[in-house]
Design a protein around this nucleic acid. Structure first.
Length: 621
DNA sequence: GGCTGCGAGACTCG
DNA sequence: TCACGAGTCTCGCAGCC
């Protein structure tokens, strides 16, 4: 491989022009180098490396003003490339957009024909690393001694030969990996999943990270004050229960600081304190004393201390985990830009971090705090939230093709209610189990408790491959009774049991299973746990690919309706959050619903619920 | 004595 | 309650200077 290093636009032109002219620059691996700022959009582009399999070049931009001339030329270069190869393409795309070389995620001067090696690595081995350096070793592109870490070269600066070598190597490895992985994907029958779902979805990932979501610091501040006062009150109450009190210190400015003699965040200390109240702490499944939610629920009502502790824990979690942490993630545009990781889970779901917007607390009525209300649309805009109705149950139906499930979804029969009615012998007339029947709502209200128990305690856990033991623990009933509930479900929907058995057979003979999108999950060893994971993967993993297809369609709305000024903010497993000009909110909601419901064709209807409002909580359907 | 890294436990979500 | 899939926080211990 010929390696060239250039520091001026003219030298870069000298290198790249003949390649473009001769057609040898149509398929190119590239990698951008940027210097991270505190804020996501302050990252400065310091260089780009290119590799077409024969030639490699690193263009050092760290000492160059990114004048319109330079930007325009680089835009022309990227516009000339017919196939872009990259390791973690969404990140490079973001860098190019932030530096002005590419306009936005729907910029049509840039090819949509891309190959992301990180995603390819994950598809061919979801249990292994999808990192470039690990892959270079695994596929024997490099020896352990060849691997340089960023920390090895950063002291030499962006214009050192050591840094050049480091940077150019990344694009060379990326090129070599894409050649190897292209063959592997074909051998494994993964080309459709890769090119029809994963690659178009790369643009969605960039859109998500660039859009972010506005955080209302004022509202969050109010919640902070409220929860802090509440937490102090709870602490005082708990200490009263124990016959103890705070020591009070004063700050330089005379404000009191309350110091508790007990750290209520410490499990060992709580075990001592609760034991001292004469309450028996049950052992957990590992045979250890535990003061988690399960224990506290069992002890609740037996002592005022326990009830206050539960509220204290909720308030503390919200304060320490969210209210006081979220502002640290706020960028100068007052928005939070989380990272979405396409290769972060073994099932194909997305993971999210810094912060994890997928674990944002729902409305906590017990302590009167609603953090989701702090995520707001900017003035003149609305948040549109759409989520799949019963996505996993519909996935279960598609996977099992159970005639009962198909019939019930087709005819609008309530599956949870049907199951509850059957196993608990509620005596609801058969026709009233259909949502179109005039008596449906009144029966549903009458047996709300029973229906919820079966929904959360039996039907849902079956998707996780639960056992009678699990159901009995959840619903606090005997194992015999629990088994009868499970049997009752299988009697109504017998193909579900067949599908689980089929999964067991697949696992034993092939050591892997695939979902309906072709995605693999491999299991080196057979176990009951592996059976649960494999069966759940078929449903959860398919849901993940379904939301990908839906999001690709939603992204296309950006170019179809530019006047909407649509931004896609979040994907939370079965939910898509967008921000849009107020006057188009209703129209957008309809369009997004349509995108989601037509993302895949199932044997039953696919339904999405949608709503819009000024904040995330109130826009929940 | 104080700092850092790490695992365990707890809690958040779908 | 916690079976399936995640990320983050705090505590408390071990190891180091």
């Amino acid at each position: 491989m010929n390696r060239t290093f250039v520091t001026t636009l003219d030298d870069f032109k000298t290198w790249v022009e003949p390649l473009i002219a001769s057609g040898q620059f149509t398929k190119v691996a590239f990698d951008t180098e940027s210097q991270d700022g505190l804020n996501w959009d302050l990252a400065r582009l310091v260089g780009i490396s290119f590799c077409n399999g024969v030639e490699a070049c690193y263009f050092d931009l760290s000492n160059l003003d990114l004048t319109p001339d330079v930007i325009d030329y680089l835009r022309y270069v990227f516009g000339s490339i017919k196939k872009l190869v990259a390791q973690n393409f969404p990140y490079d795309l973001k860098t190019l957009i932030c530096s002005g070389i590419i306009k936005d995620v729907i910029d049509t001067t840039i090819t949509r024909s891309i190959f992301d090696t990180m995603t390819a690595l994950h598809l061919v081995d979801e249990n292994g690393s999808s990192g470039l350096k690990e892959a270079a070793l695994k596929y024997k592109l490099a020896q352990p001694g060849d691997i340089k870490k960023w920390s090895d070269v950063k002291d030499y600066g962006h214009s050192s030969q050591k840094f050049y070598d480091y940077a150019i190597t990344d694009s060379i490895w990326t090129w070599q990996l894409h050649e190897i992985l292209g063959v592997r994907l074909k051998q494994l029958g993964l080309l459709d999943l890769f090119f029809k779902i994963e690659m178009p979805f790369q643009f969605v990932l960039t859109e998500l990270e660039m859009s972010g979501l506005t955080l209302d610091l004022q509202r969050l501040g109010d919640i902070h004050n409220h929860l802090q006062e509440l937490r102090l009150n709870y602490e005082v109450e708990m200490l009263e229960c124990l016959g103890r009190e705070h020591t009070i210190q004063k700050t330089l400015f005379g404000d009191p600081i309350y110091i508790s003699p007990v750290n209520f965040r410490s499990s060992p200390q709580l075990i001592k304190v609760i034991g001292g109240l004469g309450l028996d702490i049950p052992l957990n499944k590992d045979g250890k004393l535990s003061v988690g939610k399960k224990t506290l629920l069992k002890l609740s009502g037996k002592h005022k201390f326990i009830d206050t502790l539960m509220l204290y824990k909720t308030a503390t979690k919200l304060l320490n985990g969210f209210v006081d942490k979220l502002p640290n993630h706020c960028c100068r545009d007052l928005r939070i830009h989380p990272s979405f990781n396409n290769t972060g889970t073994v099932t194909g779901r997305l993971s999210c971090s810094n912060p994890n917007m997928q674990q944002l607390p729902k409305n906590k009525k017990s302590v009167g705090a609603n953090i989701r209300e702090c995520f707001v649309a900017t003035p003149g805009k609305k948040l549109v939230v759409a989520d799949y109705s019963g996505q996993e149950l519909r996935g279960l139906t598609e996977v099992t093709k159970d005639p009962g499930l198909i019939h019930d979804f087709d005819k609008g029969k309530d599956i949870h209610f049907t199951t509850a009615n059957s196993v608990m012998k509620l005596g609801v007339p058969e026709e009233a189990l259909y949502d179109s029947h005039p008596d449906y709502e009144s029966y549903k209200n009458k047996f709300k408790v029973e229906r919820d128990k079966i929904k959360n305690g039996v039907v849902f856990p079956i998707v996780y491959g639960t056992t009678a033991m699990g159901v009995s623990a959840t619903l606090n009933i005997s194992e015999t009774k629990a088994q009868s509930y499970i049997d009752g479900f299988f009697k109504l929907y017998p193909k579900v049991k067949d599908a689980i058995q089929k999964t067991i057979d697949e696992l034993k003979t092939k050591h892997y299973v695939r979902n309906l999108a072709g995605r693999y999950r491999r299991f080196p060893d057979f176990s009951n746990r592996a059976v649960r994971q494999a069966f759940n993967f078929k449903i959860q993993g398919y849901s993940a690919d379904m939301i990908r297809l839906a999001a690709i369609k939603v992204l296309a709305l950006k170019s179809t309706y530019p006047e909407w000024c649509l931004k896609m903010n979040l994907i939370v497993h079965d939910e898509i959050v967008c921000e849009v000009n107020e006057q188009y909110a209703s129209e957008t909601a309809k369009a997004i619903k349509e995108c989601m419901e037509t993302a895949v064709k199932l044997c039953i209807p696919l339904v999405a619920d949608v709503a819009f409002a000024g904040d995330y909580h109130n826009a929940k359907p």
